[in-house]
Design a protein around this nucleic acid. Structure first.
Lengths: 337, 337
DNA sequence: CCGCAAGATGTGCTCGGTCATATGTCCCTC
DNA sequence: GAGGGACATATGACCGAGCACATCTTGCGG
C-alpha cells in the first residue's frame, strides 16, 4: 500500500530534459566557469521545469564533506548555551554549513564521547563542543580520527582548540568596580565546582581581592539557579557586615535580590550586587543589575571561524581564542555609606 | 602537502579482516537474525579491532532515509523556542534521529520557504517549523514534494499538522483568576500583532472578560521584551483605576513590575500582575510572578511523535494537537482591596 | 588551410553502504 | 539416499552525485 509518489528528479533527468550530459548539469550547479551561456540557460530552465533539487547526501558521499557541523551542548535551554548556539548557527549558515545539535543532560566524559562519535558517524565535518564543565573538557583529550573539534570554554588543555570568554578578567572587573566604590571586601556566590566558568570567576574574584590586599571571605555555594541565589541571599542577609556581593551569574543574582528584598535589605543602599552574563532580563531586575556582559554571539562566530580554518587547511596548531567581557553598570551597585 | 592520514576503514576492510563478505558485516551491523553466533563474534571483533564506524551518509543515500529531522525556528535565544527545541532534540535522539537546526532572524514567508527547501535538499526526513508568526504559518500552505512537516503554533490551517498550546485557554485562566479575586476588570499588555500566540492570548483575555460581562479596556502594545513591559507599566501606573494586569509573557511582566516599582505602585497591593510562560526566573521576580505555565518540553515531544508518525505511515490526515497550559499562583496577585 | 591550445561537453568509474537474489550448507524426513 | 526446507553466506547491481580523463569544438596565428 505504498504511496504512488513518483521519485524526485535526479541529475540524469535534468540532463535528458536539457539534452546534455549529467556532468554538464553538475558544472552548472557548481558554477563551473567552462559552460557556454546558452547551455547553462538550457540546463537552468530544465532544473526549474522539473523542480530539481540536488541531493546533498549523494554529494557528501563522494566529496567526503557533508557541510554539516556538529554541536554538542549541555542544557540548551539556558541563556548562555542557547545564545552561543545561535551565534554558531548564524555563522555556520553564512559559511554554507548546517548545524546538527546534540543536547546532553549530563556532560560526563562518556556522554560527550558518545555524542561526538555519534556525530562523526553521521559524517559531520567538525564539531563544536560547548564544554563548560571539567568532565566535558576531559572527554576531549584523546579524540578519535582527526575530526576537527573546537571547544567553547574548555580547559587550557592543548589537545583541542578553544574559544572562551575571559572569566578571570570578567570577575576582576566586577570586584574592582565594587572596591572602587569603597567596599572593604566583596562576598561571592559561586557556581557549581565542576564548571570551568564557575572556577574562573571564583579565581578572578579571589585574585582581585588579593591584589588589593583585602580579606577573602568564604564563597557561598550555588548551582546557577535563582533558587540557589535566593538561599545565598538569605545567608548573606543574616551575616551582617556584608556590603558587596559578586554573584557568579545573573540568575543567581536575581535570587539574591529577591532574598535581600524579603529580608528588608536595601540594594544598593545596604548591599551592592553584581552579576555575570547580562541576560536580557537583568536590566529590569529590582534594582536593574550591574553585571559583566558576555557576548555569546561573538563566541559562536569565532568557534566557526576556528573550526572552518581547521577543516580547510587541515590540522594546524591548536588555537586558543580569549574574548574579553565588558562591564555594564546599572543600579544595583553604589558607594558604600 | 596533504596529510598522510590513511582513510577510515570501510565495510570491505572489516569483511576482509573477519574473512567474510561485506554483506555479512552489514547483517551484523543491522542485527539481522540469520547470522551464526561465531560469525557474528568474528565480525564484531574485526569491527573493534579496526575501529570501524559505519558511514551513515552512504547508508542514507541508498535507504533514502537520513534519520535527520530539520527544525526551523525564530530567535532560538528566547526561552520558549529554546525549550521547545530542547524537547524536540531529546525526543528525536531517543527515537534515533538527528536534529538539524535553522534559526531565522525573520519569519517572513520567503525565509521559511527557503529554509525548508534548504533542509529538504540536505535530505531531512521531516521538518518541524516553530512558526509562531502569521507570516511563517502562511509559508506552510503549499509545501513542496511530500515532505512531512509539523508546525508548532501554526494556524488552524489544515495544510499541515500542528502542535500547539491552548493560548486562549491560558489567557482565560489568567483572567478568571483575577476576576475571582474581585477585580472589576483586567488590563492587557499584548504581544506583537503578527504573532499567533499574542493573538490567542489577546482573544482569550477578551473572551474571558466578555463572558463575565466586564468592560474590555484597550490593550497596551508590546513586543515581548522587558522594555516594552516597562513602558506599558509606566502607562498603567499613570492611568489610575487599574487594579489587575494580564501581561502576554513573563519578560514583559518583569518590565511592568519594574515600572510599577519605580512609580511606587505596590504589587499586588494596588495592582495584581499575571504573566505567561513561567520562565525559570519568574519565581524570583519581585514579587514572585503568578503566571500561566507552558510545558515546552511536552510540545517538543509531541512534535516528534506526530512527525515520525507521518514519516512512518506516510501521508495520513493532518493532526492538530492542543496542549492545555496550567496556572501557577505566586505572589503577584491578591484580592482587590 | 593547417596546427594547436583553450574551451566546452561527454564517458565511465567511484564513494560506502543496502537490497534482491544466487549459491551453498546443514539437518530432517520419507 | 534423495529431496526439501530453513538457515548461512556471497555476489552484483544500485542510490545520485563528483572527479578524472577522453573527446569534440572553436578561434587564432603562421
Amino acid at each position: 500500500m505504498t504511496t504512488p509518489k513518483r521519485r524526485l528528479p535526479v541529475m540524469a533527468d535534468v540532463a535528458k530534459e536539457a539534452g546534455v550530459s549529467h556532468q554538464t548539469v553538475s558544472r552548472v550547479l557548481n558554477d563551473h566557469p567552462n559552460v557556454r551561456a546558452d547551455t547553462r540557460a538550457r540546463v537552468e530552465a530544465a532544473i526549474t521545469r522539473l523542480g530539481y533539487r540536488r541531493n546533498l547526501v549523494a554529494r557528501a558521499l563522494v566529496t567526503k564533506r557533508s557541510r554539516t557541523l556538529g554541536v554538542v551542548s549541555f542544557d540548551t535551554k539556558l541563556y548562555g548555551p542557547a545564545s552561543t548556539i545561535y551565534g554558531i548557527e548564524q555563522a555556520a549558515r553564512t559559511a554554507g554549513y548546517f548545524i546538527s545539535i546534540v543536547s546532553l543532560k549530563s556532560l560526563d566524559t562518556a556522554s560527550v564521547r558518545e555524542a561526538i562519535d555519534y556525530l562523526a558517524e553521521q559524517g559531520v565535518d567538525g564539531v563544536v563542543v560547548v564544554a563548560p564543565q571539567r568532565s566535558a573538557a576531559r572527554a576531549l583529550v584523546k579524540l578519535p580520527s582527526g575530526l576537527p573539534v573546537v571547544a567553547v570554554e574548555g580547559t587550557h588543555n592543548a589537545d583541542v582548540s578553544v574559544v572562551c570568554i575571559d572569566q578571570l578578567e570578567g570577575a576582576k572587573l566586577a570586584v574592582r568596580h565594587l572596591l572602587q566604590l569603597g567596599h572593604e571586601t566583596v562576598w561571592h556566590v559561586r557556581g557549581p565546582s565542576d564548571w570551568l566558568e564557575a572556577e574562573g570567576r571564583l579565581e578572578g574574584w579571589r585574585a582581585a581581592l588579593e591584589e588589593a590586599g583585602r580579606p577573602v571571605p568564604e564563597p557561598l555555594a550555588g548551582d546557577w539557579s535563582p533558587h540557589a541565589g535566593y538561599e545565598a541571599g538569605k545567608s548573606l542577609a543574616a551575616m551582617g557586615g556584608v556590603t558587596a556581593v559578586f554573584t557568579a551569574n545573573d540568575q543567581m543574582a536575581l535570587g539574591v535580590l529577591r532574598a535581600l528584598s524579603e529580608e528588608g535589605v536595601r540594594v544598593p543602599g545596604r548591599i551592592s550586587v553584581v552579576g555575570f552574563d547580562d541576560i536580557p532580563e537583568s536590566e529590569f531586575f529590582s534594582p536593574p543589575l550591574t553585571t559583566v556582559r558576555q557576548d555569546f554571539d561573538v563566541v559562536g562566530r569565532h568557534c566557526i571561524e576556528v573550526l572552518l580554518r581547521q577543516i580547510d587547511v587541515g590540522h594546524t596548531a591548536y588555537e586558543r581564542l580569549v574574548i574579553r567581557p565588558s562591564f555594564v553598570v546599572r543600579s544595583s551597585t553604589a558607594p558604600v555609606r
